[in-house]
Amino acid sequence: MESSAETELGRRVASFRELGGLSLRALAAAAGVSSSFLSQLENGHTNASVASLRKIAAALGVTPAQLLDDTSVHTRGVLRAADRPSLPLEGAEKYVLSLPPLRNLEVYAGRFEPGGSTGSEAYVHGNSQELFLVTSGEVVFQLAEERYTMRADDSIEFLSSVPHRVLNTSDAPASVVWINSPPTPNESPHAPA
């Protein structure tokens, strides 16, 4: 008969695995444990050693404490602004909001100083549905040959396979958000989006 603690740990491991979009087999391989062990753990039929728990947590991108705490199985936790990975651009900064493993969305926030841009050339990545939203200030959004002046709360939806770029031609900073679905395949989470 399995114990309540084993059942709860297994439930949390399964929840984090599903949140990360991982199959049981993929998580087992990433953690260096057998699929049968992981299945037994998720079903509450066995418990994990500290070493196995650490490997599983690392493969899930969480801490061992998060696996043992039942208050956070529906989230990967709060990403503090100071802890966001960033990608420097030309007079701008792009921040990663969706940490790997990515499942359905890839999200970034950006801040453009006056004269800042995503680069001198338009770029493409994958063929995802992309939404670009200006949260403050004003920027010019270039999509193929079209240029759109966009202000706070303006958004545009497009395919990420169409060349695009952002530039701030105003005299004040601007903040923006990029959302891609599905995430751009085979690229670093720190690549421009």
Rank of each mutant, 00 (worst) to 15 (best):
M1W: 09
M1C: 09
M1Q: 11
E2N: 13
S4G: 12
S4F: 09
S4I: 13
G10H: 04
R12P: 01
R12H: 05
S15Y: 08
R17C: 06
L19M: 07
G20Q: 02
G21N: 05
L22N: 00
L27E: 03
G32Y: 04
G32N: 07
S35R: 12
S35D: 14
S35V: 11
S39Q: 05
Q40R: 01
G44C: 02
T46S: 10
A48G: 01
S52R: 05
A58Q: 11
A59E: 04
L68T: 01
T71R: 15
R76S: 04
G77M: 09
L79K: 06
R80C: 12
R80D: 10
A81L: 14
D83M: 06
L87S: 14
P88T: 05
L89H: 04
K94P: 10
R103A: 03
L105H: 04
E106H: 07
E106L: 08
R111K: 14
S120V: 15
E121P: 04
V124T: 12
L131G: 07
L131R: 10
L131A: 11
F132D: 04
G137V: 00
V140D: 12
R147P: 03
T149L: 12
A152P: 06
D153N: 14
E157K: 09
L159G: 13
H164Q: 06
V166T: 05
T169S: 11
P182F: 01
S188Y: 07
H190P: 08
P192M: 11
